[in-house]
């Protein structure tokens, strides 16, 4: 009986890259080039191919553009599935995103030409408008993706290294505990003020607060300010517990504002998707209505 050492290597292949090439520049702007070439070609066809008069959409070129556009929209929507279905295989989400962005922008050409510039107050123009809204929101997304990551990273760093979102929350909790202990000797009124800061949920705040990073009725800031005011009227003494509480509140404020900056950046990085995705579904609905309308009532 012979036994052979178990076969080495699992046989799974792997794409190796050794540099960071972003999704916009993916493969030397391959999808930008393809989309640009297609856009030029389609515009040329639209201008020079002789077509019978009447509705452009129902000409052969119109049908072709319409079919391409509809399929493209469905394919673009599939990015949401690709992003989450972590199946084996040699796909890369970066390549998908790259193609998504450039082919998505090509849709401006495809969709608009398909319309033959016949706009009106109808379901057809609604579909076009929704499509444009998705595309514009996508373009806005590109802008935030390109400009905010550095700020996000910088906000997490200081002289002592990085701190994660979880650590920010922990730091605030830890300060809260210290404030709680330090506030024990305070009189009832001051303690109540401090308590308001302690009861504040660092994640509280409306979507608007997050987006702007402004929290006008922040309990910590109010507490710190009012305590300072109250102290101005009290006799000064060494070892005043208020001093300690004040110092801790100041530290908490700094950490809170760091975390809020973090949340603000993250919100901007994600908020546009809350337009991009729901409008995509509205677009698909309008698109279906448009197709049905065309085939049954035209």
């Amino acid at each position: 009986m012979a036994s052979i050492a178990p076969r080495r290597r699992t046989g799974a292949s792997r794409e190796r890259t050794s540099t960071h090439e972003g999704f916009l520049a993916h493969r030397d702007f391959r999808w930008l080039k393809i989309s640009a070439a297609l856009a030029v070609l389609l515009i040329a066809l639209y201008i020079w191919v002789p077509l019978p008069a009447g509705h452009f959409g129902s000409s052969w070129l119109g049908y072709t553009l319409g079919t391409i556009g509809a399929l493209l929209i469905l394919w673009l929507t599939m990015l949401g599935v690709r992003k989450r279905a972590i199946t084996p295989g040699r796909w890369s989400l970066k390549a998908w995103t790259s193609a998504h962005v450039y082919l998505g922008m090509l849709l401006i050409v495809v969709g608009t030409l398909h319309s033959g510039f016949a706009f009106g107050w109808n379901v057809h123009t609604l579909a076009w408008a929704l499509m444009m809204l998705v595309i514009v929101s996508g373009m806005f997304g590109i802008w935030v993706y390109a400009s905010l990551p550095r700020a996000l990273s910088e906000n997490r760093y200081d002289a002592e290294g990085a701190i994660t979102e979880k650590q920010m929350v922990e730091a605030i909790r830890s300060l809260d505990r210290q404030i709680h202990d330090a506030a024990q000797p305070l009189d009832a009124e001051s303690a109540a003020l401090v308590n308001r800061s302690l009861e504040e949920d660092p994640f509280a705040g409306t979507f608007w607060n997050r987006l702007t990073g402004r929290y006008p009725r922040d309990a910590t800031r109010t507490a710190a300010a009012e305590l300072r005011q109250r102290r101005a009227f009290l006799p000064r003494r060494a070892d005043d517990p208020l001093d300690k509480v004040d110092a801790l509140l100041t530290r908490k404020e700094a950490m809170l504002s760091r975390m809020r900056r973090h949340l603000k950046l993250k919100t901007w990085l994600q908020a546009w998707l809350h337009v991009h995705v729901p409008v995509t579904f509205a677009l698909i609905a309008a698109l279906s209505a448009h197709v049905v309308a065309v085939f049954f009532y035209w």
Binding site: A12, T17, H20, G22, I86, G89, R90, T97
Partner: peptide, 19 residues
């Protein structure tokens, strides 16, 4: 290892930040 296509973390990054 053994997953066709290689590291999932890299394949699933939408922007190419992770390698």
């Amino acid at each position: 290892a053994g997953i066709e296509g290689g590291p999932s973390c890299v394949r699933a990054c939408p922007t190419g930040a992770a390698i």
